[in-house]
């Protein structure tokens, strides 16, 4: 009872509704587990991800190795957990770049009609390519590295985020309180910062949760194709690429990182669905 009262006092109504939303809670638990394991990697793994034990190669999942061992006798559990760090790091960077540039470009395009045409035509041009194909093109042009993957995925998803924000801005900027602010003498900067952006956050947050999921997925694709991180730094995509050659003999080399991706992406999507339902019930599904 005390806990309930405390919770009601500390959290706003939005947070309380989120905690009652089943898909948000399940998504948060799934994705939260992945994040916690990634952060706690040194403490939840007994051996390092690159520690080889050649005599113990291709051990199936079991007592010795929770998730089995790979062709060099490295622990798949350790590799998947440490791999989560890189995959999540890349996802977080893509989300951060998306937030910054998506907000900037979305606000500019939505608020200043003069910029709308040029910016949205540019966005159309980028969105005309299938997301993964464009990312492959950019990553191939820049050369394989983690930074490349982040830049490529940011470029792919920023137009989509900017477009969603622009749509909200177009609606909000016509509302009377924006006119009232202008009548009071507020500058464009203040109107954008205090009035428009705060009222456009709901679809943006939802979109960013989906961008996180797609970034993890696309990073795996790019790494699998050899355009991502160096093989010495395992990300989930790299692990799948490495395991591919042994898929007939040792299914767990590809299955385990694949399952990790599935859990993380599923968690984020459920979380995003929940956020969408609670923050903005009117929003239709806007998957990229």
């Amino acid at each position: 009872m005390t806990a309930l009262v405390l919770r009601q006092g500390l959290l706003g109504p939005t947070a309380r509704r989120l905690l009652r939303h089943p898909s948000f809670v399940l998504g948060a638990v799934l994705f939260g587990t992945v994040v916690v394991l990634a952060l706690a990697a040194p403490w939840v793994t007994e051996v390092g991800p690159n520690r080889m034990a050649v005599r113990l190669r291709f051990q199936p999942p079991g007592e010795m190795f929770l998730l089995g061992s790979d062709n060099l006798g490295r622990s798949m559990w350790s590799r998947v957990v440490w791999g989560a760090r890189l995959s999540l790091l890349i996802g977080a960077w893509v989300v951060a770049l998306n937030a910054v540039f998506g907000i900037l470009l979305g606000l500019l395009a939505g608020y200043f009609p003069r910029l709308d045409g040029p910016l949205m035509r540019l966005a159309d041009a980028l969105m005309a390519f299938p997301a993964v194909l464009l990312a492959i093109g950019i990553a191939a042009a820049l050369g394989p590295s983690v930074t490349t993957v982040i830049i490529a995925l940011a470029v792919v998803y920023i137009p989509r985020t900017a477009r969603i924000l622009r749509a909200s801005v177009l609606v909000v900027r016509e509302l009377d309180f924006v006119q009232a602010a202008r009548a009071a003498g507020a500058t464009d900067g203040r109107i954008l910062r205090r009035h428009i952006l705060p009222n456009c956050m709901a679809p943006l947050i939802v979109q960013l949760s989906f961008v996180f999921a797609y970034a993890i997925l696309s990073e795996a694709v790019l790494s699998f194709l050899g355009l991502g991180a160096a093989p010495t730094e395992p990300s989930w995509g790299i692990l799948i690429a490495e395991g591919r050659s042994y898929i007939r003999e040792a299914w767990w080399l590809t299955f385990m990182p694949g399952a990790a991706i599935a859990v993380a992406v599923l968690g984020l999507n459920l979380l995003g669905d929940g956020l969408r339902d609670v923050l903005d019930p009117r929003l239709t599904v806007e998957r990229t």
């Binding site: 509302l175 009377d176 309180f177 006119q179 009232a180 602010a181 009548a183 009071a184 205090r194 009035h195 705060p198 009222n199």
Partner: peptide, 14 residues
Amino acid sequence: QIVFQDPMAALNPR
């Protein structure tokens, strides 16, 4: 100054 018709839309909910 101005006073608007729709008291819902005239005040920033945030």
